[in-house]
Amino acid sequence: MIGVVAAAAALSDPPSGSPVLDTEWVGPVPRDHKTRAPATLYALKAAELLGVGACTLPLVTVTGPTGPMVASFDRAWRLADGGELTGPGFAGRRSRRIHPMTLLRSLQNQVPASLSIERGWCGPCLNIFDHDRLWPCLIAMLPGLIESHGQAILLLARAGRGEEEGAKFRHRFPGEDNVEGAVALLLGDADRGLGQLCLGPRNTGLRNSLTGFDAALGVFACLSREVATAAFALGMAGAEDALIWTKNDNIHQQNG
């Protein structure tokens, strides 16, 4: 059982209706293709709204697509003659420069790195790829981090609407919403705070398995709508294959 002490989100679209919480920000983030991937920009905004200053709390980041990575290589592509790739060594053709930041912008660990640089979050860090069996791992690992440090930060970010990334998403999750953004959760003692997260059995009526980000998005929607309890389907075979959100009784005082 994990307690949600505080939550914030920066999203391309509201999870349901218009924003309710002060810690929710909705709209596309300004793109800055040269230095930061879109998922990083969402993550920085959500971290700002969470309001946790420089600290050595453990940070677990969950990153899906960070943005149109392939587009980072566009310039070299467009400069190509006859459809052949160029660039320093590209297909051994001829020398063209790729922007020096291309590598850094394309790295999957850009999200935690930028949070460390901009927010001063310098504690232990684990950066995980998003997938639909993620939450059982998180529910297993996070209590140890919370116990040793008092609290921990979980931040999930995704920007998957680029041309190629959007196609991949539709291929894997047909019919699902492809919300871009970041959800930041400050986690702590299960009995204090806004609500609790644990694993439980899946209700028969639940839809497809959710990625880590989508389940967190659901939790955030529960918070903003003050939903008492909810279950989110996970891609884990077995008895505990849903993430269960339960609002704490004191949530009204917390929000008030």
Binding site: T63, G64, P65, L107, Q108, N109, P112, C125, L126, N127, I128, F129, D130, H131, D132, R133, L134, P136, C137, A140, E164, E165, A167, K168, F169, H171, R172, F173, T211
Partner: peptide
């Protein structure tokens, strides 16, 4: 074919190849 690599499929593939039946994670810190 590239769609196959999206969203955790290397992890799914290797978990299947190894026969992993427990929790699976893919980490990246360069």
């Amino acid at each position: 074919p590239m769609m196959g690599f999206a969203f955790g499929n290397p992890l799914d593939y290797l978990a299947g190849f190894a026969g992993a039946r427990g929790p699976v994670l893919r980490v990246d810190s360069a």
